[in-house]
Design a protein around this nucleic acid. Structure first.
Length: 137
DNA sequence: GCCAACGTTGGC
DNA sequence: GCCAACGTTGGC
């Protein structure tokens, strides 16, 4: 099982909307970046991911799960763009802010810190555990 | 709202 | 295949 991080501006698509989709989940569409797409192509059903609010909040608010593997993005006819479906698993009791992540010496290598613009990122197992602890899980 | 960082495009 | 120009993202 692999770990990931999904980034979204809550004004466009937020955690509450993701939760409202329930177990059926929703396409993580609209990604037009090769690195992010390649990450999604590598995902398997059951992989876990963090749900991060960029711009507004700048914090990881919950955990999601991949519920459909990579398939064509329904928002475009361009065959280059694929996406997965994800569903909300559970919220963090305490959201983990970007500030906290940046100030934790164990998390300085996180892609969230080093490559701020990548919208779908890999997360290592140790990073996963540390962020879960910070979030009160 | 600004701007730095980065990715993509297109002319040569 | 290089690189300048441009567009977008996202933290501040």
């Amino acid at each position: 099982m692999s770990y990931w991080l999904f980034k979204s501006e809550p004004d466009a698509w937020g955690w509450d909307q993701q939760v409202a989709k329930g177990d059926a989940g929703e396409e993580w569409n609209g990604v037009r970046n090769y690195q992010a797409r390649n990450n999604m192509r590598a995902m398997k059903i059951g992989d876990r991911g963090f749900f991060y609010h960029s711009n507004v909040g700048k914090e990881i608010v919950g955990i999601v799960e991949v519920c459909a593997e990579s398939h064509p993005d329904s928002t475009t006819d361009d065959p280059r763009w694929d996406c997965v479906d994800i569903r909300a698993v559970k919220p963090f009791p305490r959201p983990v802010t970007l500030d906290e992540i940046k100030s934790d010496p164990r998390l300085t290598e996180m892609v969230l810190v080093k490559n701020t613009r990548l919208s779908v990122q890999p997360v290592t197992e140790s990073e996963w555990k540390i962020v879960c602890e910070l979030g009160g899980l």
